[in-house]
Write a protein that binds this DNA or RNA. Structure first.
Lengths: 235, 235
DNA sequence: CGTAAGATTGACAAGCGTCAAATACAGTGG
DNA sequence: CCACTGTATTTGACGCTTGTCAATCTTACG
């Protein structure tokens, strides 16, 4: 949340009022299911969560992975029924947010509201990049793009991270993220390994050639506009 | 904008203050180009605009099409440099929005700000659905999904529209929207025609079997949550 | 030690991209 | 009104990418 602008003490207080209660989930548990009335609004405090869409034939497309600090369920605020399912990839801790508190935030904390707006816009950019990566014709490009993307997200969550990090996503998950079969994902992964771009041991990934992966992905890194001039001042 | 909640007179006045000046573009002209500093913020008053991302090798992925009423360029508010390009698919009329006015809107019109937030969330849902459609392994499913999606957008823009509507997008555009080659798009289109699902003459499409297309797409229709209870009241 | 889940490999078929050529179409100038 | 020209669509042939099915191997965990 502080990635967009410095927050004042009153901002932090308003944020604290937003969440009431905690929820803990084990790996593999469902946070919320698509099709159900959309009520679930959470702040992800710890762990990884994946959001997905399920087709009528049972196939699923993973949309994105979320790490600590992300706001979960906001897209469903616009809908009568939830559009996405969310599942805990690791053990997870959630802060529960009530909808009325969201309304009060817009009324009393215009600066925070604008920051939430910016966060939503950044999520759009993320989806745009993922859409572009999935649309890319070659799986090698898509996968390179995905790995760079996940790495960037991990680094934001923990700036100490270098080019090596824990990867709780299974190959099945990765394949569902870029819309290819698990078998083909495995082969593509091995090509990246063979070409010396990555290392892949157990649940740990190392990006050996970050620049090479970026080049393969074909998309530039996105830089957030920190503290834009038009943001309202804190009250 | 009124798809989410009824607006008061003061809301409309605040909206009117948002735009200053008009811009007209001919078919094919660029609204804004990715990579440039992100300053362009527009209200689409008339015509069709497509947003796209370009890869380093020159390939492009179309992300979405926008019709009258859409707010253009908001994702770039979060970024130092624009992530998307936008091009006029038809002759287009734009209302120019200045960033400082956005800030004032968050300060003075919390209800409108919340509605803008909801619009951003709905755009996320759109991108999620598009991502799912593009990730679908078969082009036939992706195309069915795209046609249903465009139709729904056209109907919202003009509720009088039935199952037949003008389609300014070329087959090249459509192929870039679902990430397949133009040649394969053409063949897929012909399969839909052959199966009696659509008609395609010149620049006019007719969805002969809307339910069949929905079933092919594998995704449910999204229903907006009109006038949610948590929205702040208008001042 | 045994079992289940995930990762890996091989073989084959289908989907899709690419190249190239042909056709239809809209706009232009004569 | 008609030939000319550039653009969009259509068609065919071929090869590469990817999906599917099935079997094997590894790892995690009780």
């Amino acid at each position: 949340m502080t990635a967009f602008a410095p927050l004042t003490e009153s901002d932090f207080e308003a944020l604290a009022r937003l969440t009431a209660g905690r929820r803990r989930l084990k790996r593999g548990e469902i946070v919320c299911r698509e099709g159900e009335p959309s009520t679930g609004l959470f702040l992800l405090l710890q762990g990884w969560v994946a959001s997905s869409v399920t087709f009528a034939d049972g196939a699923r497309q993973l949309l994105n992975v979320h790490l600590a600090g992300d706001l979960l369920g906001t897209p469903d605020l616009a809908l009568r029924r939830s559009a996405q399912s969310m599942v805990a990839i690791t053990p997870v801790e959630l802060g529960i947010i009530s909808q009325p508190e969201m309304g009060r935030l817009f009324e009393n904390s215009p600066r925070l509201a604008a920051i939430l707006f910016l966060i939503a816009q950044e999520e759009r950019v993320t989806l745009m990049d993922r859409l572009a990566a999935v649309g890319a014709t070659e799986a090698l490009h898509s996968l390179a793009s995905l790995l760079v993307h996940i790495h960037a997200r991990v680094v934001r969550s923990d700036p100490e991270t270098g080019y090596s990090f824990m990867m709780p996503l299974s190959q099945d998950d990765l394949s569902a993220l870029i819309g290819i079969s698990p078998v083909h994902l495995n082969r593509t992964l091995q090509q990246l390994r063979h070409d010396g771009l990555i290392e892949w041991t157990r649940h740990r990934v190392t990006l050996l050639d970050h620049a090479g992966l970026m080049k393969l992905s074909g998309l530039p890194a996105r830089q957030l506009d920190y503290n834009p001039t038009w943001l309202p001042r804190s009250r």
